[in-house]
Design a protein around this nucleic acid. Structure first.
Lengths: 338, 338
DNA sequence: GTCAAAACTGTGACCGGTCACAGTTCTATC
DNA sequence: GATAGAACTGTGACCGGTCACAGTTTTGAC
């Protein structure tokens, strides 16, 4: 302990007030924008803050104001899927950035196991955060109920199945996007088009399949549909199943880039050339798309915009504004896999 | 608004006390373990908590106890590198899991830009978290100084250059690991072994090169070393540079799997077969290693253990315990790229 | 020179918990 | 049946801010 300048307890607003020769109230005013305080007083306080090394105590402030200036980024996936999906990372990065610009903090909450569910419910109930960014939600998720019950402001990414109108959402038009992807394959002349879907209890899992089916119309063959869970491994497994059931398959639409990447691996091992023998299109444009050989054609989701819109909406609701939902467009990115 | 049970303000400990017919103190005791309270009183309080829907207010508790029951997961990389590196995700997941088991919360802080640096310093200064998990630190990082200055308990991942003894750390033996990787290539009979290093101002960037050089001894050729920044793109660029400078290169050791993956892409495009023409070994075993074709031989870092040790050490320091550092072993995982 | 409004400042109450301490009841022991 | 100690309970002070309000000074218009 050669250096012991940390010996004393942290300075409080009273210490600063004393040092500056003013009252607590004046110091508080300076901290919060400095309106209605004389230049002299402000200068003295600024100086005192510097010399004392003062930081406003977060807990005390929260207690007094009822605001915490932080929001939760809530993931409800089982752990092993969480970070496998680059989608989350993109949203996380975007949200963190957007929030930090507004001097708010992102608290990452993971509610994978039932045990964690109660932890999280407790945490949110304790008023630890001002709002919640709900990232992935499966149908009839119990957490959704308790979120609605506690009344904490929430914005969902994608429209939670069964709770379409319970909270503001930011989403892409799944059906239109899926139709665009499917049409792209049709226009390329593919005849036997398969699909690897996401879980049926997620909006992306359900509605991308709807779009796929709608676009194919009479050519839709339920035998060419295989479910996955968005992970690369599940994409590989699904592709293997499809290949076995329908060796003549000449194109596949995967509901995520990860699954598309898994599918590509299987196809290559099976001796198929991409796109000559089988075309592959993914969904997300998650950065992974470029690392696959060949680079994936995919439906680009505007993640930057999604996270920024989510934060914007959430803050608006927190401030007491009325809630509304936003739908953003996707775009087809053609690369070498089709 | 068909259901409006959320109308009234949240119940406080006083409401619970009143409902249970006991005092605030007794309620507080029940919440915190229930010692020294009669079974009758405890039952009444438990019941009252349920009927009122009470949750202890986090801010009030923090203010009174001086603890926040949350720790920061602090990243200091520029944004674009952050989530490209799967390493972070692994550590994040591990830490979140470990903390949630102890009913603590993980707060993700990103300090990429200088502006974010001051935000973060402020946040930490405000006592918002009980401790900090410092993930990636470049030499002479200003944030490091302010961390040390504010005296907030911190545990670093990897030994921060220039601050070796200023805080507890959890790390792997970089030099030994790099020697093991290099020896593997030598034992395979490779003669012209190159290396793609990490940034020289990070411990992994510096010491993995040291190990590489030590192991090669007189066979070390500085011409076969090219720096990267751990990203896939930088790995590709470095590999291209090496290939141009030394077309006879027959093996390459990359300081991360991401860079190895980038290198593999370039090698394949250059018509090199892996491992017949050029062997590639990575570092991390980050999950990416398995997605590369061929699957990467790599040095496995025990991320699960690293994050769990970090959390353990940090909590120990927070509780006032003495600090110590931990070094964990890596292991060679041989796959098809060597 | 008067007076009202604007600009500035200080004070006490309050946010919702925890904690130390004092007070009460219950048990066990001699 | 007195007494010590353990088990249990309630009270007031306190954590460190914010806020409403009251009080003081300055400004400007007539």
């Amino acid at each position: 302990m050669e250096t012991t300048p940390t010996s004393k307890r942290k300075p409080t607003i009273r210490d600063v007030a004393a040092a500056a020769g003013v009252s607590r109230g004046t110091v508080s005013r300076v901290i919060n924008g400095g309106h209605w305080v004389s230049p002299d007083a402000k200068a003295a306080v600024d100086q005192a803050i510097k010399t004392t090394g003062y930081y406003a105590n977060a807990a005390a402030r929260s207690l007094a104001t009822g605001r915490s200036n932080s929001v939760a980024f809530l993931l409800t996936e089982p752990q092993h899927l969480l970070f496998a999906d680059p989608t989350f990372s993109l949203l996380l990065r975007g949200a963190a950035q957007e929030l930090s610009q507004r001097h708010m903090t992102l608290v990452l909450l993971v509610a994978g196991t039932p045990e964690e569910h109660v932890n999280v419910a407790q945490y949110l109930g304790a008023g630890h955060v001002d709002g919640v960014l709900l990232i992935s939600s499966h149908e009839s998720d119990p957490l959704l109920e308790s979120l609605i019950a506690t009344g904490v402001p929430t914005v969902a990414c994608g429209i939670p199945l069964g709770h379409a109108s319970d909270m503001p959402t930011v989403s892409v038009d799944e059906i239109v996007s899926a139709r665009t992807a499917t049409r792209h394959l049709v226009e390329r002349g593919n005849q036997r088009i398969g699909m690897i879907t996401g879980p049926a209890d997620t909006p992306g899992g359900r509605y991308r399949l709807v779009g796929f089916r709608e676009e194919l119309g009479d050519n839709f063959d339920p035998n060419l549909v295989e479910p996955g869970d968005y992970s690369m491994a599940s994409g590989a497994a699904a592709m293997a199943a499809l290949l076995e059931r329908a060796p003549d398959i000449d194109a596949v639409f995967a509901a995520s880039d990860s699954m598309a990447a898994g599918a590509v691996g299987v196809l290559r091992k099976a001796g198929k050339r991409i796109p000559e023998d089988v075309s592959v299109i993914g969904f997300d444009d998650s950065g992974l798309a470029l690392t696959v050989e060949p680079p994936l054609t995919t439906m680009r989701q505007p993640f930057e915009q999604i996270s920024s819109e989510m934060v914007g909406l959430l803050l608006h609701v927190i401030e007491g504004g009325t809630s509304k939902s936003v739908t953003l467009p996707t775009s087809l990115v053609v690369r070498d896999s089709t």
